[in-house]
């Protein structure tokens, strides 16, 4: 079964008189447990595709199915539920909630999911230990380094064991050592927990980890390499 299926996705942006295609009839199917990298120059449509798959942005045309559920006609609230149940996000800029501690940031998604306080605490501490942040649970984002913040963001994305993790340039603000640690963590989660990863990246080091590499140009998939 496919984790993600996209059919004929079109997304247009208007720039003055000019119509730009963010996505130009994109067809894509990602198998469960896949580890896919989207590459391509800036403006090629990587982030637009991730946002469409994540239900953050609606395509002008085409259809998206996540874990067997078509999301095209879902309302804003239903899309929020779908993201909550199925998808973990890792953004380029760490995007943590600054007034919450590392543990509280990780617990946040589980809180929205309705888990009990003890379950949340246990799961958050486990995942923070797994990403190497044991002892830093009570620190706020401003008291963590960039790499540590990104690991908190990853912990938050995977703590509730989503079927799919969407990561947009997750290593862009990390030094090479931290980037390597993060990618090893992704691979481990992919292998251990069968989490499907779709990663948009410019970083060739990241692409080396991919089982499947898709190259996009001007909103079109121009290359689809399975390794």
């Amino acid at each position: 079964m496919s984790a993600v299926t996209c059919q004929g996705l079109v997304k247009r942006f208007q720039q003055g008189d000019q119509t730009i295609y963010g996505l130009d009839h994109v067809d894509l199917s990602v198998a469960e447990g896949g580890f896919l990298c989207l590459s391509g120059p800036s403006g090629s449509g990587k982030t637009t595709l991730l946002n469409a798959i994540g239900g953050l942005d609606k395509p002008d045309q085409g259809s998206i199915t996540i874990a067997g559920c078509c999301i095209d006609a879902l309302s804003k609230g239903q899309l929020a539920d779908m993201r909550l149940s199925n998808i973990g996000f890792v953004f380029q800029a760490y995007n943590l909630i600054p007034v919450l501690s590392a543990r509280e940031n990780v617990e946040f998604v589980m809180q929205v999911q309705g888990l009990s306080a003890s379950e949340r605490r246990q799961a958050a501490d486990d995942i923070l230990r797994e990403v190497g942040l044991q002892g830093l649970e009570d620190r706020r984002p401003a008291q963590l380094s960039g790499g540590q913040q990104q690991r908190v963001a990853v912990a938050r994305a995977i703590v509730s064991k989503p079927a799919l993790v969407l990561a947009d340039e997750p290593t862009a603000n990390l030094d090479s050592h931290t980037a390597e640690q993060l990618m090893n963590l992704f691979v481990e989660l992919n292998v251990k927990h069968k989490v499907t990863f779709i990663i948009a990246t410019h970083d060739t080091r990241v692409m080396e980890y991919a089982k499947r590499l898709i190259r996009m140009v001007d909103g079109k998939i121009v290359e689809d390499e399975i390794r």
Binding site: L56, G77, A80, R83, F108
Partner: peptide, 10 residues
């Protein structure tokens, strides 16, 4: 971010 993580508008 909260919306992306699944928090509803309400």
């Amino acid at each position: 971010l909260m919306q992306a993580l699944g928090m509803k508008p309400q």
